[in-house]
Amino acid sequence: MNVSSTGPDLKPILHARGLSKAYGHVVAIDNADFDLYPGEVLAVIGDNGAGKSTMIKALCGAVQIDEGQIWLEGQLVSFRSPLDARRAGIETVYQNLALAPAMSIADNMFLGREERFSGLTGSLFRCLDRRKMTQFARDKLTELGLITVQQMDQAVENLSGGQRQGIAIARATAFGGKVVIMDEPTAALGVKESRRVLNLIQQVKERGLSIVLISHNMPHVFEVADRIHIHRLGRRSAVVDPKKCSMSDAVAIMTGAKSMSND
């Protein structure tokens, strides 16, 4: 197997060995391995049914694996829910974005991790510190160049697809996570909005986060990825360097038309 680019001395921030998961008779992932290095964008590609989404769900806690181990920063971890994974520092931008459409931008940013006032107001009266949350949300969105002024109480449903994707990405990067998993972030977007989201991915990378990008869009993958993990028949078939590998080669490996062993 040809694991390219990133130096061998670097330790993976997130890696997994021998992941297996079956749904009844259907084997979704079969002894799959995974490595994500600090500060890189790792694209995961694979044909439909190759098991990439099951593997990703295992990494973000949405699916419980039958066998195998996952390490985060060298520590063996086991996630029983996405919340577990999030607490450990793995944030996920789901394909459906997991936003509540009728709620405001600030509310959505803090959904499931609301901040209360300190002192009695917070502990006894459970009062949320809305000003602090709004300010924090605004700061984080401004950092990513996502927002200019006020309007933090605008409902998310009034935003465009790209804007919503931006909110979801900002949420995944705002709370000190180490790894961000993005599931098809450009699938629902037009050309212009896709471009903006790809720039956003670069920005997030520049801030030192490690990114797993799941995408079917080969041009997007080849543009932003540092390495490409190709999934086939339930396991990692190859990891290629987008600078040294052509798109058609990657597709060939993905579909089994070409094997990596003699490369």
Partner: peptide, 19 residues
């Protein structure tokens, strides 16, 4: 209260955000 709104508006999203 926020969780009530989220659960009613988009239960799937609410669950994914850990509610």
């Amino acid at each position: 209260g926020r969780h009530i709104y989220a659960t009613g508006g988009e239960p799937e999203s609410a669950m994914l955000t850990g509610i």
